[in-house]
């Protein structure tokens, strides 16, 4: 469990980015932290593995205060995949890239081999084992970065803006992958402003604006609240925008899924036609 208890955080230049944030993430949850660029999303999740320590308040990861332990120790539990894979890839081969963290954590060679094979296979990268990560396409690099974190099987997985620059096919695969991991019991936390992606995944949504949490509810309730969405400087999902209007024809407002939208409209059409 990750507990964030009334956390304040200021950068050394004096800018206060988090202003009293409290939340709890239980094991096995799927959470999206949403908000505009600069709302404090990334700053918040960097507290989960101790990269940043609160100026005030505290963060507990499975009961351990992040101020009293190391990033390396926390990272074993909290895997963090950064937005841009170019900020971490440096090895000669994909295989070395994936074993980097495993060596840092002191796994023995046999385990490392097993884990690398497992991660390569999981992300469909086996054919690139001996290839330089710099030769891969953008989408493949993202997968290597993800594999290099999943390899040590962290209990919590944090993904920072995983959909940026991804095309719809890549996004669809990513969605399937995340849902699959979560289904197998991994706690997944994504940081994003991609509202359509969140509307498809329907996780718990934590909405941030100006360093504070302004909503913490299921996706359907948060994404269909025009006031909250505009306070966070986001845009309502298209389907919701449609149903806000259809409300005067007697449709419900709180719709985020296109499949639910289809069902509701079909029902009505069939009623009318019979």
């Amino acid at each position: 469990m990750i507990e964030v208890d009334n956390v304040y955080f200021s950068y050394p230049n004096g800018v206060e980015v988090l202003k009293g944030v409290s939340l709890k993430i239980n094991d096995g949850e799927f959470v999206a932290i949403m908000g505009q660029n600069g709302a404090g999303k990334t700053t918040l999740v960097k507290h989960f593995n101790g990269l940043l320590k609160p100026t005030r308040g505290r963060v507990l990861v499975d009961g351990v205060d992040t101020r009293h332990t190391t990033v390396a120790a926390l990272a074993r539990k909290v895997g963090f995949v950064f937005q841009n894979p170019d900020h971490q890839l440096f090895s000669e081969t994909v295989e070395d890239e994936i074993s980097f963290a495993l060596r840092n954590f002191g796994f023995d060679e046999k385990v490392i081999r097993e884990r690398v094979n497992w991660a390569l296979n999981l992300l469909d990268l086996t054919q690139y084992r001996k290839v330089s990560p710099f030769m891969l396409s953008g989408g493949e690099k993202k997968r290597v970065a993800l594999a290099s974190v999943l390899a040590w099987d962290p209990k919590f997985l944090v993904l920072d803006e995983p959909t940026i620059g991804q095309d719809s096919y890549q996004k669809e695969k990513l969605k399937q992958f995340i849902l699959h991991l979560n289904h197998q019991g991994k706690t997944v936390i994504i940081v994003t402003h991609d509202i359509e992606f969140v509307a498809e995944c329907e996780p718990r949504v934590i909405l941030m604006a100006n360093g504070r949490i302004i909503a913490d509810e299921n996706a359907r309730d948060v994404l269909t609240d025009p006031e909250l969405i505009s306070a966070a400087s986001l845009v309502l999902p298209e389907v919701t925008q449609l149903f806000m209007r259809l409300n005067d024809l007697g449709f419900p407002r709180k719709v985020i899924s296109v499949y639910e939208a289809k069902r509701l409209i079909l029902e009505r059409l069939r009623q009318v036609m019979c």
Partner: peptide
């Protein structure tokens, strides 16, 4: 599989 807008997708589903 380019990502058509959700309202287009709805149109296609209907």
């Amino acid at each position: 599989g380019i990502g058509v807008p959700k309202v287009v997708k709805l149109y296609l589903l209907l």
